[in-house]
Design a protein around this nucleic acid. Structure first.
Lengths: 331, 331
DNA sequence: CTGAAAGCGCTTACAG
DNA sequence: CTGAAAGCGCTTACAG
């Protein structure tokens, strides 16, 4: 690999002049510039980003910390973050935590040391202290999907409204026995979906039927099990709300296995649409979360924070996106 | 952030001694060592990986270049690469190309310059020259899923066998009019699936019914459209093979929309199982690709190449994994 | 067993 | 308009 020095030698100038020409950081004589660019081309010179980073204290890299990718909203979000970052000249380092606080801690510790300028995280909520430390240490941080720390900016969807509005919607469709499949309420999104559900059910004078667990619950088996639980708890059930798509898919399957027709006997709505609802055999009504926009926005927020002068950092910002109901066959 | 210098000052030794103590690179007196570790702890010193990388010419990072994540095999593979890399002390930089050669080129160019020590790629096949250049320049490269370059190591599944065996399987179930939904044959995996299909059909004296396109074809609409094409081409169709899961899902839906029962009227098999087949309303028979093992293996191959001394690099290796048939309701 | 020095490839005041 | 020099934070021969 050619270095600045090689270019400088070939163009018969000092390395500093080459650097200035390449970065357009001060006037360089057109003739000199031409010689330099010719040399760059001939040697197919590419700057060493490591050295740039060391010198400038910037990596031009942002870390993305998410539980997992497959069949979750995080696949869309991660991809959106990556493509937006790339446009803005940043690379994306990814870590999957599987919602394990120990793995998360390990990832955060690696990221803090020169690996990245900023972090976008959907965290477990168990490493708050570390996260605040990292942020205080000068690394930009934005929370996505899960707002666990009030002192750190966030981009989330309005999960409370998701729960509330869906109950109201199902009520308007004639449902009175509405069950909820939820994940652990120790994570904010699940907690808030429940809050919304609870408030609406109370206002309407309906009785709650809930299935939940101390685990995150982001898998098919869990959703299947919860569906059975709900049916056992309340044989009169006429609607199921699933916190995430994969639970909704599991519910469809569990109902089919019991010969219960969707939506004729039980209506089903997923509270986290991420582009799979429309691809199913029975297409699934869902609240579509604007994953792409959220990823883009979080990327801009974290990069704005990175690039702001240290004496004028943007203030903490909590952004809430609305989900939109997409009606499909399941309701 | 504390630096080596800070630690050295606090422990009253030279930075070189601190470095040696921390890296266990030569004997350091136990007392000195103790002072150093105390200082490290007090300052909660963490080495700056950028500086280490610059000095050693190593980043301890590998780049992953894939078309996309959502609803594809690549989500599983990427996650497997990331967790395996992390265990081995490497971080993972990710790029999505959307199968666009221009984006791919841009990504590869960024990766080559100090960003990564190695690359694992499922490429478009349109930047072969660049890829060989990068490899020749000393960056380890392993191809995954798509083997486009014979001179670069690869980890793939036996797609030819997937096509061949599936025809044989469907034939044994009584099918004689077997259609194939495929992607562009300019990508090796699609081409080989077709080859296997073609050979088996010929051996059995059956007539081919194919739907394909110049595009990669990795989406639902395409699969839906191809299903309609196949049915128009051959109203007697009694089986459909879909190259990838998403096409299989689209086929199920298209058949449902035409009131064709699966598997009674048409049997369906996906040639690329990646853990979604079992989660569907009608569970889908598929050839399960060992994504996790493939990701792991590719990670080891690329890291072995990175860590081998430059005068003794491992030779090119092409690994082929077998897929295994998982029978479910759709066949 | 440890220190002083050079250098990885760049950028950026400082002169002129 | 351009060069010489310092320095980002490390590691590693080289002495002693």
């Amino acid at each position: 690999m050619a270095t600045l020095k090689d270019v400088a030698r070939l163009a018969c100038v000092d390395v500093s002049t080459v650097s200035r020409a390449l970065n357009n950081t001060s006037y360089v004589h057109p003739d000199t510039k031409a010689r330099i660019f010719a040399a760059v081309k001939e040697l197919s010179y590419q700057p060493n980003v490591l050295a740039q980073g060391l010198r400038q204290g910037k990596r031009h890299t942002i870390g993305v910390v998410v539980p997992r990718l497959h069949l979750t909203l995080f696949a869309d979000i991660t991809q959106s973050i990556e493509s937006e970052s790339r446009k803005l000249g940043y690379a994306t380092l990814i870590c999957h935590t599987e919602d394990d606080p120990v793995i998360e801690k390990e990832c955060l510790n690696r990221l803090r040391n020169g690996f990245v300028d900023g972090i976008i995280i959907a965290g477990t909520g168990r490493n708050g202290h570390l996260l605040r430390d990292i942020h205080a240490g000068g690394i930009a941080v934005t929370q996505i999907v899960r707002k666990q720390e009030g002192s750190i900016s966030s981009v989330i969807a309005d999960y409370d409204a998701c729960g509330y509005d869906t109950v109201r919607y199902l009520y308007s469709r004639g449902c009175r026995e509405i069950g909820l499949i939820n994940g652990t309420t120790s994570l904010a999104p699940y907690r808030e979906r429940y809050n919304g559900y609870h408030r609406a059910m109370e206002e309407l004078g309906l009785t709650e039927t809930c299935a939940t667990s101390p685990m995150p619950g982001n898998n098919f088996e869990y959703g299947y099990q919860c569906t059975e639980d709900l049916l056992n708890q309340n044989p009169e059930l006429d609607a199921i709300m699933a916190a995430v798509d994969i639970q909704g898919m599991a519910a469809i399957r569990a109902l089919k296995d019991r010969n219960i027709r969707v939506p004729e006997q039980i209506r089903l709505v997923s509270l986290t649409g991420h582009s799979i609802g429309g691809l199913l055999e029975t297409t699934m009504t869902s609240l579509e979360i604007p994953a792409h926009e959220m990823g883009e926005k979080a990327t801009h927020m974290v990069i704005d924070e990175i690039e702001a002068p240290s004496d004028n950092k943007p203030s903490v910002q909590h952004l809430v996106f609305s989900a939109s109901l997409v009606e499909r066959e399941s309701s």
